[in-house]
Structure formats: structure tokens, C-alpha cells
């Protein structure tokens, strides 16, 4: 068995953040005497990732996902614990390590705003010491795959959000990183652009064997890209496994829906009723009872649109974090 690409043991990060009450008086008082609060952003994380894995970090806002990602990338020095990525300690920021990783952040850009992306790529060629022939080959491949051949010749400030993100990906991948950190790469993008970026990341992972670690506000990103997820909440690891395993653990019931001219008189006898309105019935059913329930629903008069599916990931997360009033956020 190959050595893990990422190994995290007892990882902790503590921040000291200033706090004050609202209002002018409190602001003036804070000028003289500032109060600080210690925030335990990450509290003893333990996990390891194999080379080539695609892993999603899930959790509500402020859960510690981005802090963890930045500690893995070497940007933030841990307060305690041990991190090893590609055989290096990230916080040492050794050039050999930095050449093996790349970080793409949906809300920050590395490309110079005023210049065409192609100038930025050329700069990265020098920074990462990429041989000219190798650079040309990679650039051709990446730009063809992401369809930015013409886009990269326009100033970045004139690009759409999606075009800019594609160029950010090219800039991040020109040096062929072994580990790719993606922090909300599809934020703000339309659905078709999200699909394109997702497909690209999947292909990059499959063909290059890079380990991909993703955080995203879009559950579809994580569900489509990551066979394994790590759920982090209040800096602690709450779940480590597949999305299916998470669903089985948190929301094991399967959702069965149907339309029919006449609905059963006692739908609760079939399962937990989610919706029973007009001609539409939605039930949550225990997995072992699904065949029997489907048989009963098919037998309804003029039955149509019968569907069986898992609980949506949003609902699973909502149940996990016990927040019924709002959809759990991821990212």
C-alpha cells in the first residue's frame, strides 16, 4: 500500500481575535483597551488521504474547513499537531513542497487584473521553472481542455467570472501539482460553468493522478466530485467516509414519490409522509420496505412519475447539524 499523500495528526489551530460591543463608545474604549477572544478554529483533526483521492470538506460556515485547507497548503502555521503533505511539512514552505501543490480560491485571484492571463501564465513559467517546451505543451493542453484559447489573450478584468476561473485553473495547474486544493472554485458560477469546471477537475484527477481536496458551497460539486467526504464542525471531524455512508448513517430512509388519480387512504401505513397534496404523494421509506411500497404505489389508479431516490445531501447535512430552519452550508 502506498504512503499517504496527506497525513494529519492532532491538528489544532487557535486564533486570538479582537472583540467589542456595538457602538461608538465601545469602539473608542477598544482603542485604549482591546479585548481578545481565543477561537479554537481546528481542534485535533486526524485523517489521511491516499495519492489520487478526491476528498470534499463539508461543514457549516466557520467550521474550520478553509483554515484546515490553508494549513495543508502551508499558508497557516498550526498551533499544535502534525501535518505532512507529499512527504513535506507544509509550514516549512520549502520550494520543493510548493512546486507539488496548488491552491485555487474562488473568492481570491492570483491573476493580475490588468494583464491578459497569458502574461500571468508566462510569469508562472519563470516562477515554477518550467522548461519552455513543457510549458508550451501543458498550456496547449489546458487551454484546449478549458476552451480559453482566445479568452487568455484578453485582460483579466474584461473576463466573465467563469472565464476568469478557468484561467485561474490553468495558472494553478501549469506546473503539474500533485496535490490540488480547491476552496469554493465554482462560487458564483452559472450551472453550465459549474458542470464544466467539475468535469475538468474530474478529468485532471483521473488522468494526472493528483490528489484533490475540495470545499464548496454547492453540494452538487461535492456529491459529483468526491467519493469521500470529511465533515468538519467546530473544528472537529464529525464524519469520514462516502456520501452514501453518511446518508445511511444520518438519513437512512429512501424517498419515494408518485402521482396518482387517487392516493391511499392511509399513506402513513406505507412510510413517513413528507407530502400528501392533490395527486402527489412523497414518502420516506425504510430501505428494506421499498420494494413493497413501490408495488403498492404502482397499483394506484393512473399512477405515474414514480421515483425512488436518496435524501438530498442538503437535508442530510441539515439533519447532521440539527438545523431545520436553514439549509446547511458547505464550504
Amino acid at each position: 500500500m502506498s504512503a499517504p499523500m496527506v497525513r494529519v495528526e492532532g491538528l489544532r489551530k487557535r486564533f486570538s481575535v479582537p472583540r467589542r460591543e456595538a457602538g461608538l463608545r465601545a469602539a473608542l474604549r477598544a482603542l485604549v483597551r482591546r479585548e481578545f477572544r481565543v477561537v479554537e478554529a481546528v481542534q485535533g483533526l486526524e485523517f489521511s488521504l491516499a495519492p489520487g483521492e478526491r476528498v470534499g470538506f463539508l461543514g457549516p460556515n466557520g467550521a474550520g474547513k478553509t483554515t484546515t485547507l490553508k494549513m495543508l497548503a502551508g499558508l497557516i502555521v498550526p498551533s499544535a499537531g502534525r501535518v505532512e503533505v507529499a512527504g513535506f511539512t507544509p509550514s516549512d514552505r520549502r520550494p520543493e513542497f510548493l512546486r507539488r501543490v496548488s491552491l485555487v480560491m474562488g473568492q481570491k485571484r492570483q491573476l493580475s487584473w490588468d494583464l491578459p492571463a497569458i502574461d500571468n501564465f508566462e510569469f508562472n513559467r519563470v516562477v515554477y521553472e518550467i522548461e519552455p517546451a513543457q510549458y508550451r505543451r501543458r498550456l496547449d493542453e489546458l487551454t484546449a481542455l478549458l476552451d480559453v484559447g482566445e479568452v487568455m489573450r484578453r485582460p483579466v478584468r474584461q473576463l466573465s467570472l467563469g472565464e476568469r476561473m478557468k484561467c485561474e485553473l490553468v495558472a494553478a495547474l501549469l506546473h503539474g501539482p500533485q496535490v490540488l486544493f480547491l476552496d469554493e472554485p465554482t462560487i458564483g458560477l452559472d450551472v453550465s460553468m459549474q458542470l464544466g469546471i467539475r468535469e475538468f477537475i474530474r478529468r485532471y484527477n483521473a488522468e494526472h493522478g493528483a490528489t484533490v481536496i475540495l470545499t464548496s458551497h454547492y453540494m452538487e460539486d461535492v456529491a459529483a466530485l468526491c467519493p469521500r467526504i470529511l465533515v468538519i464542525d467546530e473544528g472537529r471531524l464529525r464524519f469520514d467516509g462516502s456520501i452514501e455512508a453518511l446518508r445511511r448513517q444520518i438519513r437512512p430512509l429512501r424517498r419515494v414519490s408518485v402521482r396518482a388519480a387517487t392516493l391511499p387512504a392511509e399513506p402513513a401505513a406505507l412510510g413517513r409522509v413528507v407530502l400528501c397534496e392533490g395527486s402527489r404523494l412523497v414518502l420516506d421509506v425504510e430501505p428494506e420496505r421499498v420494494p413493497a411500497v413501490v408495488q403498492a404505489l404502482v397499483a394506484l389508479p393512473e399512477a405515474q412519475d414514480l421515483a425512488v431516490h436518496d435524501a438530498p445531501l442538503e437535508e442530510v447535512m441539515r439533519a447532521l447539524f440539527g438545523r431545520e430552519e436553514e439549509a446547511a452550508e458547505v464550504g
Partner: peptide
């Protein structure tokens, strides 16, 4: 869709480029 091709030949310092020269170029 085109294949990504082999990108495993990672970037790195050329064996013949002294670090001073790298920083001058940078």
C-alpha cells in the same frame, strides 16, 4: 474531449541553473 496527457513531469529547478540566476530571472 481531449485527454490531458502526461503532466507527471513536474516543474522544478533545472540542474544547471544556479539559484542566483533563478532569482535574477524572477
Amino acid at each position: 474531449m481531449r485527454a490531458l496527457g502526461d503532466m507527471s513531469d513536474r516543474a522544478g529547478p533545472s540542474r544547471h541553473v544556479p539559484r542566483v540566476l533563478f532569482y535574477v530571472r524572477l
